[in-house]
Structure formats: C-alpha cells, structure tokens
C-alpha cells in the first residue's frame, strides 16, 4: 500500500490493484461496523474527568477549563507538543543565510492593490484580535494555539506579496522559535526548586505564569507555522525560471 509512492500529477486517483481495493474495503467496513457497535452498545464512563476538572479549576489559576487542562493539569503534554512543532521546523528550515537580517522590507514598484489593502487593513486587525484571543484564553474560548494560528495566517497574507521577508534562520528567528520551549522548561524546572515538583505552579502566581508561557508559546507557534508555510514559497521565488513563468502568466 505504500510500496509505490506516486507523485505524478495526472495519475488516476485510485490504485488499480484489485487486491488492495477489496482488502481495504473489508478492513474499513469491519472497523466501522465494530466501532459503531461499541458506540451503540457501551454506555461507557458517563462524564469522564469533567467533575474532577471542575473541582480543581479554582486551583489552576484560569477559569477556561480547556486552558486549565492544556497549560496546568497536562502542561507536560503541551511542552512536548511544542517540541513536535520544533522537530518539523528543524526538518524543513533551509540552512543557509545565517547572518542575513531577521526582517526585511522590499520596496516593490508593481503593487497589487487588493493585497496591499489586505495588508494595511486586515493584518493589524488580525494582530489585535490574536492578542485578544490570547488574553481571553484564561476565561473563555481562545488561547495560545488559536492566537498563534491567526497570527501565522496574517503573516501568510504578508508573504503573498513579497513585500516583507523574514529570514527564519537568522539568530533572532531561532531564538524566537525556541523561546516557548526555553521558557516552559525554565519555569517548569525552577518550580521544582520552589514547589518540589515539575510544573507545579504556586497558586498565587499560576495565572501569571500561564499567561507568560502562553505569550511565549504564541510567538513561537506563529513563527513556526509561518516558517512552515514560507518553506514552500521561498525556494520558488529564488529560482529564476519559475519567476519567468509567473510573469508570462
């Protein structure tokens, strides 16, 4: 099933080997039937951990239960998850241009009206809204990941026009990319000294510490997601032939 990895653009949608077709229909149907029987038959654990979480939410420093789970009860998972994001960034980032500046603005003579309008009007609004999401994450839906994703979306918009370029391999970018992990680990281990156990927030500061971690996480996630996107764009713009084709179009 993975023996041939097809990347021909115009290839047919489906492998023509009948065996894998039949087998996968059978397996998928079996899976579906079995699991649906489970769902229908089993009452299961009715409330999960909801009561326990509502009991302890007072002690977590935030009032939004999802944020409480993500950054307090199961903060270790979130830490490792940020590490997953870092893995992919490391795998994808180009390794050249270490000393080029972090942020560059290119003055382009030919302007795309729609894009520049979007940049001028929508991007600041998105930034403000992301800040709001981050701040609101403590007590209502929102948080670091959502804010980071929004900011990354705004930066995707920025790169569409080639007006702004961020060099993701500059020292500044690298520091910002690992910022959340560093802050997370530092706070986590420092708390061993103060509180006796990893990532045990003291009650008085937990809200503040969570906000600090979330802010750093937003920065890192924004940069990580934006760098993932730009890795598909940059090499296209640098290659000369592709640019030619573009101008023809």
């Amino acid at each position: 099933m993975f023996n041939t990895l097809n990347i021909e653009y115009d290839s047919p949608a489906v492998d023509k080997s009948a065996l894998s077709l039949i087998a996968s229909v059978l397996v998928a149907g079996f899976l579906l039937a079995v699991t649906i029987t489970i769902v229908l038959s089993d009452k299961g654990h009715n409330t999960g951990l909801a009561p326990l979480i509502t009991q302890n939410i007072e002690l977590s420093g935030v009032t939004n239960p999802v944020t409480a789970v993500l950054l307090n009860f199961r903060a270790y998972d979130t830490l490792l998850e940020i590490a997953v994001l870092l893995v992919v960034v490391l795998a994808i980032l180009p390794t050249r241009d270490h000393h080029a500046p972090f942020f560059k603005r290119i003055v382009v003579s030919k302007k795309n009206l729609v894009l520049s309008a979007l940049q001028r009007w929508i991007a600041p609004a998105v930034v403000v809204f992301a800040g709001y999401l981050l701040w609101a994450g403590a007590h209502q839906p929102g948080g670091a990941f959502q804010a980071g994703a929004l900011l990354a979306g705004a930066s995707v918009l920025m790169f569409q026009s080639d007006t702004y370029q961020v060099n993701y391999t500059s020292l500044m970018a690298r520091v910002l990319l690992v910022l959340s992990l560093v802050v997370f680990i530092t706070i986590g281990t420092a708390l061993i000294y103060f509180e006796g156990s990893l990532l045990t927030y003291p009650l008085a500061f937990s809200g503040l510490l969570i906000l600090l971690i979330e802010t750093c996480a937003t920065v890192s996630i924004t940069l990580a997601l934006a760098s993932l996107y730009s890795s598909f764009i940059v090499s296209e713009n640098t290659s000369v032939t592709d640019n030619k084709h573009r101008t023809i179009k």
Binding site: A83, H98, L171, V175, I185
Partner: peptide, 25 residues
C-alpha cells in the same frame, strides 16, 4: 521519585537540542 533526576532525563536532551539549534555552525 522525589528527586530531579526523572524530569532531567527528558529535559537535558531537549536543552541540548535547543543549544545545538541556537549555536548553529
């Protein structure tokens, strides 16, 4: 179980990764 050792086993390589990434070439 009360010592620093167990989390350190996870965090030391993470720290090494961060430093290796930062110092670059």
């Amino acid at each position: 179980s009360s010592s620093l050792l167990l989390p350190a086993i996870v965090f030391l390589p993470l720290l090494a990764a961060i430093i290796a990434f930062l110092i670059g070439r």
